[in-house]
């Protein structure tokens, strides 16, 4: 299961040197047109002071300096970290547990897989509203059920200390299926022979999982980790509808602040600076991750 050594460069006719560009061509063309140009503009904007439409003024690093004294930015940054730490490992752990369970023959396995996967396909706005009904303190079905069980009502979304937890719960719910499916795929290519061999050597189920399966899943984990961090840092719709960033600032995350600066305040330059900070965090995370795992090829 090890990654193959660096593919040898096909040598020979000169034409071959052009071939990769042909294969890459469509992607590169779309990338240059629709992604690179806007990104360069956005980077340029981050060094400008702009109103909604007017011409921007170059202000050097002023936007970035302002970030330092912006309390809302600090709150949003902290919330973003809490949100990411709360959602990413949880989604992956539950996803892996489900995948492990559903990788063996079970009655109704296909149905289970589909059911765990399906939250991923619902639109964010709809999920946000339905969840806000379910978790309404006064008339939500969650509290109605708890009341019947004699457990009392929980201020799911109305208490600043609970709201982030509820939000994390909801987002994990949307994310678990994705992690499960990817892990399922990975688990299927763990050779049964090796696991069986370990079993014969007397390794218990937990030891087999920890010493054999888990290391073999490491590359998958690495990719899922980065994808999940990206998803979490850019989660917008659900938060917007479910809590509006409240109560207070308890669920205000960076991406919302980017949105607010860009479109409510009309400060595109400042929003671009915020966005780049978000990218910097992601890049830093990716690089740290790469350094930690030696499998540098696995991502960047």
């Amino acid at each position: 299961m090890s990654r193959p050594a660096e593919t040898p460069v096909p040598t020979g006719r000169r034409g071959r040197r052009l071939t990769p560009y042909v294969f890459l061509g469509p992607a590169a063309l779309l990338f240059l047109t629709f992604s690179l140009v806007p990104i360069v503009i956005a980077i340029a904007l981050s060094f400008q002071d702009t109103q909604t439409l007017g011409e921007g003024q170059w202000v050097g690093t002023q936007n970035f300096e302002e970030l330092g004294s912006d309390r809302l930015f600090r709150t949003a940054l902290l919330n973003t970290v809490v949100f990411a730490v709360g959602t990413v490992p949880t989604s992956m752990a539950i996803g892996l547990a489900l995948a492990t369970a559903l990788n063996r023959p079970l009655p109704g396995r296909g149905l289970f897989r589909a059911l765990f996967f399906v939250p991923m396909v619902a639109a964010g706005v709809v999920v946000g509203v339905v969840m806000s009904w379910i978790f309404n303190t006064d008339y939500g079905v969650a509290n109605n059920a708890l009341e019947i069980l004699g457990l009392g009502r929980i201020p799911w979304l109305t208490s600043p200390s609970m709201a982030m937890l509820t939000l994390i719960l909801v987002v994990v719910w949307t994310r678990v299926g994705f992690c499960m499916v990817i892990y399922l795929g990975a688990l299927q290519s763990v050779p049964a022979e090796i696991v069986e061999a370990a079993s014969i050597d007397g390794a218990g189920p937990w030891a087999r999982f920890r010493r054999i399966t888990l290391p073999m899943l490491a590359p998958t984990t690495s990719i899922l980790l980065i994808l999940n961090v990206v998803f979490s840092l850019q989660a917008f719709d659900i938060i917007y509808v479910l809590t509006g960033g409240g109560p207070g600032f308890s669920t205000t995350v960076l991406i919302q602040y980017v949105f607010r600066s860009a479109f409510q305040d009309g400060q595109m330059g400042y929003a671009a600076a915020l966005g780049l900070v978000l990218v910097a965090i992601l890049l830093l995370f990716t690089l740290l991750r790469q350094r930690a795992s030696k499998k540098a090829e696995s991502f960047l």
């Binding site: 509203v129 806000s132 309404n136 303190t137």
Partner: peptide
């Protein structure tokens, strides 16, 4: 109700209550 505040989401909390 605390679920009826300036930032709360959830559609029409005022009607529902």
């Amino acid at each position: 109700s605390p679920s009826n505040m300036s930032k709360s989401g959830g559609g029409h909390v005022d009607f529902d209550l």
